[in-house]
Design a binder for these strands. Structure first.
Length: 850
RNA sequence: GGGCGCUUAGCUCAGUUGGCUAGAGCAUCUCGUUUACACCGAGAGGGUCGGGGGUUCGAAUCCCUCAGCGCCCACCA
């Protein structure tokens, strides 16, 4: 025997993958209807997590299925420079060496990080291979490849020319640790307890004081007004009067603005336009100056000597102390409020004013909304579309600037003599350029990573290059990613693609939920509950992981990860392996099959079962219902092929069909368990091709009647097994029948399957009658055993009576008979007849026992 | 405040035009080593499909309502 007793995935997987890759099996064939999907590029120098394994597994199932069904198929892999993520890691490295980013210029940093990434890049790609992903590696795109940068510049230029790009002073979410601004959606908002201080600002024009409430007293130095609600009776008379800003001696005005909520705090708010997004807007409405008092490094500036250069926390303490000394603090209350955090460092985000590049989003969002309205993109699950619509309707302009050297430089230059004169120019390697005698200095910022990632589908397929090899694959067929990237990524891809190419980037979006740990907790490094997919691959095999991940998982739904399911997947692979071993044992090592033909009852039945499975898999996979498809495949192989067909085959020799059943099983299972199926395929003497490239199975002719008759055999077998195991002791019994062609012709089969002692034709019934509706058969058991079984029969009788009652009720309901589909009514009638016949037999049996 | 989702067997979850006795994996119980497989085989137990109401011949599935849980977005100074 060639095959080892148990399937050991690690012995075969790397070789099988190499076989696929070197044979060019991942490349599109150039014939058939195009199918394309694009990998959300994983961090080039990171490790994959279970989310990747799920994502890539699902997409690979569809890819392999499409490839086998004759499509011109491509799965384009990617690698992400992961601008910010990588930058954080690299900056930590620099720190270890006692250096910082300020010791180098942009070019130096860029090339250093490039080397750093290059060193570890292969790691990720190896892991993708270990997962069995059938990606076209020759077409891999790295997010800093030339073609990415060219396209991104082209897009930026287009927006620039259309007047959608502008520079603006806005409040940005600023990380003082990493010295860069964040997009709104990169800020982590957390609810927490804080203190609200009530601080008295003395009146100048009137007598007394106005008490404002603030959670950030240190920003007081940047106040340029106090705001109240215009209709608030408490303060109405003070609107337009002046107050003294404590600790500074500066005079500021009390203004009226609808933004103020009279019910919150004291109803009076200090306005700090430079350090709060709302205050910024109030400031704009009232033409207030906006002095900056916190610098980009998180330290106080433009404040009195004693506070100058302090960190924010320290400044707060000292400000409070100073206010206390002047007896200006009226009250302290504890409140719950949201604070924005740097999702990377966990430190608070400072809202600061900075000049940034912005993209006007409304025209883009409008096109996206129209496309969604026209259902040009189908979502799985469908409901997620609404979240996107909501996001698009409330779209805000996109801050494209990042102050990180590791990214694509923004191709813009500023006139050194005229700060408002910016020009587009791609010569980003030059610090200064001279055009028409004017000197321009380059922008040092880079693009937000999502600006380039957002163009991924049309970059990777060369959609903008006419006549290119890959452009036939755009728009792509399927995009699959986590729900969490819906607005961050999916929305941007749709908007950018529609605007730049005029087409949607993909026709279907499948959103998978998060893979949680076994206690339904989010996996995170800090909790230490992260499971490394590579360890699971090493322990159980790549196929087992894939099967375990997709099982019982529906789109958009977060779900706990369970090793049990991976183990079940491993067991399945081993089951498949042993079916192959049985076939090898039966067929020998040089078997060459002829055209398969169904002969026996079980032959017809297994062909029918495989046809049903095939149709179910096709229907569910076309609808991206992976778990259901996997389940249909699993049960066809295990329950039908292994439990019934292999068992029955021990008593028959239809070797051509056995080979066909094995081939068909392997084909149906291949998308779900690529390694083990290909490994087996390679051992089969009658194949010299690769399973990955074979065609999806064709079903041969069979007789439905014969298949149905095997169903009756199964019923006899099941009943005999059931009755035998319910009897006391572990004896094997004989089966007797009077006149029954089916039993007579299939005696050996029934005997083996039901583990009977013998099957004999008799003149007189004896023993225990089986509860069958089509056949008469008796288990040949001794008198004594019969008695003990009586109770069993009575219970069976009661259940059957109940079932008859239900069916009769249904059939006596005129509405049911008239309105339900005829086939259902027929079915019910047939069932009723069967059950009634069964009652007859049971009664008869009990009669005999008396 | 706005939006989305969840509640089905002991556990984790499927269940897509509403239709046969509501399923899976794991766990539990009984029996069994029959040469493909103990990563196994045969059999069994276990569910008022969160509560209530409605539509329908028929509801886990559609509608209303109540309760509990979770996520996302957005301005509480």
């Amino acid at each position: 025997m060639n095959l080892a007793k148990a399937y050991e995935p690690n012995q075969y997987e790397p070789n099988i993958y190499a076989l696929w890759e070197t044979s060019g099996s991942f490349k599109p064939t150039g014939t058939g209807k195009p199918f394309s999907t694009v990998m959300p590029p994983p961090n080039a120098n990171g490790n994959l997590h279970l989310g990747h394994a799920l994502d890539m597994g699902l997409k690979d199932i569809t890819t392999r299925y499409k490839r086998m069904t004759g499509h011109d198929t491509i799965y384009i892999p990617g690698a992400d420079h992961a601008g910010f993520e990588t930058w954080v890691v690299y900056e930590r490295e620099l720190q270890k060496e006692g250096k910082s980013r300020f010791d180098f210029n942009r070019e130096e940093l860029y090339s250093q990080v490039w080397d750093f990434v290059e060193k570890q890049r292969g790691n990720m790609e190896l892991q993708v291979r270990a997962l069995g992903v059938s990606a076209s590696w020759d077409d891999l795109v790295f997010t800093l490849d030339k073609k990415v940068i060219e396209t991104v510049y082209g897009t930026f230029k287009k927006f620039w020319d259309e007047g959608l790009i502008y520079r603006g002073e806005r409040i940005v979410n600023y990380s003082t640790k990493y010295q860069t601004s964040y997009a709104d959606i990169e800020v982590d908002h957390k609810m927490e307890k804080g203190t609200l201080w009530h601080v008295a600002y003395p009146m100048i024009d009137k007598i007394g004081e106005i008490v404002i409430a603030t959670s950030r007293p240190e920003t007081l130095f940047g106040d340029t007004a106090v705001a109240v609600h215009p209709d608030d009776p408490r303060y109405k008379e003070f609107i337009g009067t002046k107050v003294m800003l404590p600790l500074t001696g500066r005079e500021i005005e009390i203004i009226a603005d609808e933004y103020v909520d009279p019910k919150f705090g004291t109803g009076a708010v200090k306005i700090t336009p430079a350090h709060d997004p709302n205050d910024f807007e109030v400031g704009q409405r009232h033409n207030l100056p906006r002095p900056q008092v916190i610098d980009f490094d998180g330290k106080m500036i433009n404040v009195p000597e004693e506070f100058l250069g302090l960190e924010v926390d320290e400044a707060r303490k000292r400000t409070l102390a100073a206010l206390n000394a002047q007896e200006l603090i009226r009250k302290e209350e504890t409140i719950e409020h949201t604070v924005g955090y740097d999702y990377k460092s966990g430190l608070p985000i400072q809202p600061l004013i900075k000049e940034q590049w912005f993209l006007k989003m409304e025209p883009l969002a409008k096109k996206a909304l129209e496309a969604l309205e026209a259902e040009e993109i189908i979502f799985y699950p469908a409901g997620r579309k609404n979240i996107l619509v909501q996001y698009l309707k409330n779209i805000r302009d996109w801050n494209l600037s990042r102050q990180i050297p590791w990214g694509i430089p923004i191709p813009a230059f500023q006139n050194v003599d005229d700060p408002n004169d910016w020009i587009f120019n791609e010569n980003v390697d030059e610090k200064t350029i001279v055009i028409d005698g004017k000197t321009y200095q380059r922008e040092e910022d880079t693009f937000d990573t999502w600006f380039s990632s957002g163009q991924w589908p049309f970059i990777t397929t060369d959609a903008l290059k006419e006549g290119s090899d890959l452009s036939r694959f755009f728009p792509t067929e399927l995009m699959e990613t986590g729900t969490d990237l819906l607005d961050r990524w999916i929305a941007r891809m749709i908007m950018l693609s529609l605007h730049v190419t005029g087409k949607v980037p993909f026709k279907n979006v499948y959103l998978h939920g998060m893979v949680l740990d076994e206690h339904s907790q989010k996996m995170s490094k800090s909790k230490g509950n992260v499971i490394n997919p590579m360890e699971l691959v090493a322990e159980y095999g790549s196929d087992a992981l894939r099967l375990g991940l997709i099982a019982s998982r529906s789109p958009g739904q977060n779900q706990a990860f369970s090793v049990d399911r991976v183990i079940a997947g491993r067991n399945f692979c081993n089951k498949l392996w042993n079916i192959a071993r049985f076939a090898e044992h039966k067929l020998g090592e040089d078997f060459t099959p002829n055209a398969p033909e169904a002969k026996s009852l079980v032959d017809h039945w297994i062909v029918s079962e495989l046809e049903t499975a095939k149709k179910t898999i096709e229907r569910t996979l076309d609808d991206y219902r992976y778990a259901e498809a996997g389940e249909a495949m699993y049960h066809a192989v295990w329950d039908s092929v292994a439990d019934w067909y292999v068992e029955a085959s021990k008593d028959q020799d239809n070797l051509d069909l056995l080979a066909w059943v094995l081939d068909t099983s392997l084909k149906l299972a291949h998308p779900f368990a690529p390694f083990v199926t290909e490994t087996i395929w390679q051992t089969l003497p009658w194949h010299n091709d690769l399973l990955i490239n074979t065609e999806w199975p064709e079903i041969i002719d069979y007789s439905e009647i014969a298949a149905g008759e095997f169903g009756q055999v199964q019923e006899i077998v099941s009943e005999a097994r059931f009755v035998a195991t319910s009897l006391p002791g572990n004896d094997r019994y004989g089966l007797v029948y009077l006149e029954d062609t089916l039993l007579e012709e299939n005696a050996d089969l029934v005997k083996r399957l039901a583990k009977l002692k013998e099957i004999t034709k008799a003149d007189q019934p004896r023993g225990l009658r089986l509860a069958l509706h089509n056949h008469d058969a008796w288990l040949d058991v001794p008198e004594k055993t019969l008695e003990e079984h009586k109770e069993n029969l009575e219970m069976r009788l009661a259940t059957t009576h109940q079932e008859i009652k239900t069916l009769e009720g249904r059939l006596s309901n005129e509405n049911y008979v008239n309105k339900a589909p005829a086939s259902l009514v027929e079915e019910s009638k047939k069932q009723l007849e069967e059950k009634q016949a069964l009652v007859e037999r049971l009664l008869h049996e009990l009669e005999i026992l008396k």
